[in-house]
């Protein structure tokens, strides 16, 4: 159990990597926050105004771009082993997501299941990425 906890909490990483990871996490929270604001604002009349859409689109995109650059910096400066773990997890995440969606599209065309939406795609990517990271850390610990 402690092995799993250590893997989740990325125990043992150099301070530089923790700092970079925190920056990425903060931007990811802000990025998700702008999506939440969009969803929650549906009840208000100003939700569909051009000004609101322009602002939320600009802020969401800008935070997304900053997050990509922060993640790039994080990977570039990352501890050697942790970089391999992260890249393996990313490969797993992308692979599982593409295969799942292509397979599910066959089922949705046949009418067996409903078409999956974008949020499922993001959720699946995030979950497989997290699983890949934790499994990798346990494997090399």
């Amino acid at each position: 159990m402690s092995k799993i906890l250590d893997a989740i909490l990325c125990k043992g990483l150099p301070a530089r990597d923790i700092k970079n990871a925190n920056r990425v996490n903060l931007l990811a929270i802000l990025w998700a926050g702008t999506l939440a604001v969009t969803a929650l604002s549906r009840e208000y009349t100003w939700h569909s105004t051009m000004l609101f859409i322009s602002i939320i689109f600009t802020v969401h995109t800008a935070i997304g771009v900053l997050m990509v650059f922060a993640f790039r910096k994080f990977l570039k400066e990352l501890d050697d082993l942790e970089r391999k773990i992260q890249l393996d997890a990313l490969a797993l995440s992308v692979g599982v997501t593409i295969i799942s969606f292509s397979s599910s599209s066959i089922l949705s065309v046949a009418g067996v299941i409903e078409k999956l939406d974008q949020s499922s795609l993001i959720m699946l990517m995030a979950i497989t990425y997290m699983i890949g990271t934790v499994v990798g850390r346990i494997k090399y610990r």
Partner: peptide, 22 residues
């Protein structure tokens, strides 16, 4: 070497090959 202890452990055990800079 400014890396994690896990990296050293994995290299010593032959589980992981270091990058050229390392």
């Amino acid at each position: 070497l400014e890396v994690s202890r896990q990296t050293i452990n994995a290299i010593e055990k032959g589980k992981f090959d270091p990058s050229l800079p390392l």
